[in-house]
């Protein structure tokens, strides 16, 4: 029977009615279309694979990359930020110690600070990392000899670049009127950065570039603020230390002159009415730096030793009148110089 079945199978396969009517042209056209479709699908899959691999690779690199917001030590020296976009509003000097950037005013600058022309700064790339947008000004301050310390100020920037360097928190951060501040020092690029976010929503970026780190820090502090009571505090006394105020990491101590005459209380607004604004970050120097002392001596009309960043956004805001007084010497049993406090009338 096995032979019978095999014969049946051979006959069936050989002579069975397995005729399939297929058009050759249609079949080849369909095969060609399917072939091209398969090729396109393969190519698309390959492209997607490459794209996914590239994305995964970039993501992997970003995992191990410190990123712009973290500390960058060595690479920042060689990196140069692109040429910043020119501001639509040219900065203007306001008085002897201030500069206006749009509707914001920065005060407390050294008297010898000179505003650098925007055309000069636009043509050369800066080693400092600065935002691309926002109102900006560049000031140059002589730092002894032929050296210059350059201060770049940007306000109201939309982008937030990371600050290169090593964070260096300062003790006067707490007296910025509630502003959040971050100061970094990038020694390889000889630049000190300060970024501040004020409670009013304004964002400041300061970058001081120069060979002297102390001069850079002083310039940053003069522009960013110094020790003083926060905004809105009425007659708040600062507990002063008699011989050393403020700590500096470079080992330099600022000493209070023991025979410094008391500064009489000054009445009246410290800033013009047009600058009076609620967005004021003010700081009073208990012991002003020599640079600031020169500035204060050169500008007696302004608040001496005071550093103010004033924004005139809200002209209907409350007027601010900083006043400085000196406590009677009788409250200092050791004959320490009078503590200077600040009377802010809000």
């Amino acid at each position: 029977m096995t032979e019978k079945l095999e014969e049946l199978l051979a006959t069936e396969f050989r002579d069975g009615p397995y005729e399939l009517l297929v058009d050759a042209d249609r079949l080849t056209a369909t095969a060609r279309r399917r072939r091209s479709r398969r090729t396109a699908t393969t190519a698309a899959a390959a492209v997607c694979g490459v794209a996914l691999a590239a994305t995964a690779g970039v993501g992997l690199v970003n995992v191990f990359d410190p990123g712009p917001g973290t500390v960058q030590s060595a690479s920042s020296a060689a990196a140069t930020s692109p040429v910043p976009a020119p501001s639509t509003v040219a900065p203007q000097r306001v008085g002897a110690d201030g500069v206006r950037l749009g509707d914001a005013v920065m005060r407390g600058l050294p008297a010898e600070a000179k505003l650098v022309d925007a055309g000069v700064t636009a043509g050369r790339p800066s080693t400092a990392v600065l935002p691309r947008t926002g109102d900006r000004a560049v000031l140059s301050v002589p730092a002894g000899g032929s050296a210059q310390t350059e201060l770049a100020v940007v306000v109201g920037a939309e982008d937030r670049p990371g600050l290169p360097g090593v964070p260096d928190p300062q003790d006067w951060f707490g007296s910025l009127g509630g502003a959040q501040a971050l100061l970094t020092v990038d020694d390889s690029a000889e630049t000190t950065y300060l970024t501040m976010n004020t409670p009013a929503g304004r964002r400041w970026h300061l970058a001081a570039t120069g060979p002297d780190a102390a001069a850079r820090l002083d310039l940053i502090r003069s522009g960013g603020g110094g020790p003083g009571p926060p905004r809105g505090v009425t007659r708040r006394r600062r507990r002063a230390r008699p011989h050393r105020v403020g700590g500096r990491r470079d080992g330099h101590r600022r000493l209070i002159h023991p025979r410094r005459p008391p500064v009489p209380a000054r009445a009246g607004p410290a800033t013009p009415a047009s600058w009076g604004a609620s967005h004021v970050i003010r700081a009073t120097r208990i012991a002003a730096h020599p640079t600031t002392n020169r500035s204060a001596a050169a500008t007696p009309a302004s608040s001496p030793g005071a550093t103010t960043i004033a924004a005139a956004q809200n002209t209907q805001a409350r007027a601010t009148t900083p006043q400085e007084t000196t406590l009677p010497p009788s409250k200092h049993p050791q004959g320490a110089p009078g503590r200077r406090t600040r009377n802010t009338v809000v």
Partner: peptide, 10 residues
């Protein structure tokens, strides 16, 4: 069979 033939020709 048509599918098989077409797949084979592709």
């Amino acid at each position: 069979a048509e599918d098989l033939l077409q797949d084979s020709l592709v």
